[in-house]
Design a protein around this nucleic acid. Structure first.
Lengths: 140, 140
DNA sequence: TTACTAAACAATAATAATTATCATCTATAC
DNA sequence: GTATAGATGATAATTATTATTGTTTAGTAA
């Protein structure tokens, strides 16, 4: 399996024009084993155990690289910083994956269905917040 | 209308146990007129025109206060910092509004419908990312 | 292999976003 | 009006992220 992981990583790199470095490979393999939604710091802490000399900046750069290549993904497409909204109508968001612009879309125009109020794990639903990811008119 | 705004703001404050200060009132009124998804800095810039001595920290504190009281809302319920995920199955997220924990939920378990691929404004849909906001089992 | 070149790395400085601290000041309850 | 808890402004501190730079290394062609 070591071999399989290695090979698939080399393939991913070739497909995306990414150089295969030791740091990158360890980073990839460590991340593969992580579940949930770790922060760069958490990933860094784990990778550091295997490659003590690695720099946090390297972790950041390669996480970005993996995300851009579609190997892994970001949990949120939104701006990193706080944004408020005053729109009090029920609505959702269209997020442009190129320019990152966020536009409101009314609940009705979106037209989703469903409405369970209890989900697996005993999660009690308050509301749904939908991000429609795509390309805005300007960026097409 | 000045009067109406003022009165409704006093009511909101009374309902939420918030003291009515000049800064807060101006902040509220300015934010009411802002559309889109402004950052605290953008709000600060506008409020500063009316209350030049206001501090950015005051803007931050009161935005948080308004958000906690449900007067306005945050665009994203997620952590402020970058999070990655390695889960490559189609899934969405359950976000606990108390502890902010994010849990994955499979596309099928969630069971939403809809599937327009063109939305108002000529937005071209790539995919939907749903956040189910609610209370996790632990926090109930 | 060897040598070359572009890219990657580590260390760390710099920047951006947010929060904490603390000395006044003020709204509210009495 | 007065007391006091809470609010404010100035700014230091913290956290998250990005940029810079000198050094090392991967990829590649001879």
């Amino acid at each position: 399996m070591q071999v399989d992981l290695t090979r698939s990583f080399r393939e991913i790199c070739r497909e995306n024009g990414i150089a295969v470095t030791h740091q990158r490979q360890v980073l990839y393999e460590v991340m593969k084993t992580m579940h949930g939604h770790p922060s760069p710091e958490e990933v860094y802490a784990r990778v550091k155990k295997k490659v003590p000399a690695i720099s946090l900046a390297t972790v950041y750069k390669n996480i970005h690289l993996f995300v851009e290549s579609g190997v892994f993904s970001k949990v949120s497409m939104h701006h990193g910083s706080l944004r408020v909204e005053m729109n009090d109508e029920a609505h959702h968001h269209m997020v442009c994956s190129k320019c990152k612009a966020i536009t409101d879309i009314g609940e009705k125009e979106l037209g989703l269905v469903s409405k369970k109020d209890k989900l697996p794990g005993g999660f009690l639903v308050e509301r749904y917040a939908v991000d429609v990811i795509g390309i805005c008119a300007k960026c097409q």
